[in-house]
Design a protein around this nucleic acid. Structure first.
Lengths: 221, 221
DNA sequence: TAGATTGTTAATCGATTAACAATC
DNA sequence: TAGATTGTTAATCGATTAACAATC
């Protein structure tokens, strides 16, 4: 088995992967740690350290072969196979995610959208049809769902989590805004859009203070 | 001016704020660093250290008064006033964000939705009406927009960023998936949903390996 | 071969945690 | 007053960076 990879490193892997796939599109063949560092605003030392966790080694005096780097990053992230996704909640967010082509394109195959509201059942969302919450378990099992995405209101998020776990999903992406807990062995990633906006608010405040201090103009309230 | 607050601490402030506002709803009056730590999966030491950056001090032998803590966190994040938001892109994601009541409720007032597609102009999204991209600058200025949210395709994300900066927004939340750059002084927060899914994929892989090692059953492919 | 770039070790830096005096 | 909990200092831990021998 591979050595445990620090969380801070894992968090950067998707960035490397996005860059590498963009370079691949441009038909570039090689990239150096210094180039990667420049593109992602890191040091080349961090880049080399991070990439040393991969199954693929760079080549002294050449750098990293992009195709191999792509494969190694895809492999380490567990993206070789593609993952089947169920979206829970067919509101605006659920529909937006379902129709967002980029997930599909990157190996997250959206296989179903379900909702507890009977009136929505049967409605089309892209090439899918909204199904009932009552058949969640059946859907997960018959369509080999790996990942459940919670795009439902906060108050039902934990309840849905329980159902997803029971049905046998392997991981959960929770966009409800309400942090949820699943048993050990079923990882949960909580996406907090409000938190991102609040961090932005902080950054704005800091930037404004800086401008004040520097004697620069700011738009009057 | 206040001391600079480490990024790691600022990232936790929204979590404290969410908890504190939930406790406020429950009419709780006091909370201790140990209780906060338990709820957010931190150590009480980290909590006390973090909260010591605030303008409000706790009370020995009592803990923190929730109402004051709320105010202090709101203040430090720059959320006292509420912020006016423009959403760029009236596709599924843009509409979902516009209609998502929670942002409004937490002080992010969505004042406009714009799109470059003429056919969409005039269409209603909740209480707003989709407006044209050509009046972006006018909208930002006349409606005192603080924050632009990019909910448009990746290929136009950087271009929109330029327009937003020129129009005078104070910060940008970028949900396009394409990282964008703005000049110093206009902070950008990039939300990467795909990266979250990829991190989840990694966590799933690790969890599966662990189960294998422990000799537990895993669903066969 | 000479030069460039890797992989890795050691040094530095920053974040988290432990410990405890202050205090309500 | 006694006990609990804060705020803060010092210790520990982990992540980033610097440096350089190995190597293509």
């Amino acid at each position: 088995m591979t050595k445990t990879i620090p969380e801070s490193v894992v968090e950067r892997f998707p960035k490397y992967l996005a860059l590498v796939q963009a370079l691949l599109e441009d038909n570039k063949q090689w990239v150096s740690s210094a180039e990667i560092a420049r593109a992602l605003d890191l040091t080349s030392s961090t880049v080399r350290q991070d990439l040393s966790y991969l199954d693929y080694r760079g080549v002294a005096n050449r750098g990293y072969e992009i195709e191999n780097l792509d494969e190694a990053l895809t492999g380490v992230l567990g993206l070789n196979e593609g993952l089947n996704v169920l979206i829970v909640g067919a509101g605006n967010l659920g529909r937006a995610l379902t129709l967002h082509g980029r997930f599909q394109q990157k190996g997250f195959n959206i296989r179903a959208v379900i909702d507890s509201e009977p009136a929505l059942i049967g409605e089309a969302v892209g090439s899918l049809v909204i199904e009932g919450m009552d058949i969640l378990q059946k859907v997960v099992q018959s369509r080999n769902i790996d990942v459940g995405i919670i795009a439902a209101p906060p108050d039902v998020a934990q309840e849905i989590t329980g159902k997803l776990v029971l049905a046998g999903v392997r991981g959960i992406l929770n966009m409800s805004g309400q942090p949820v807990h699943a048993p050990q062995g079923v990882p949960v990633v909580n996406v907090r859009l409000l938190a991102s906006l609040q961090q932005l608010a902080y950054a704005i405040k800091v930037a404004d203070n800086k401008n004040d201090k520097d004697g620069l103009q700011r738009r009057p309230d």
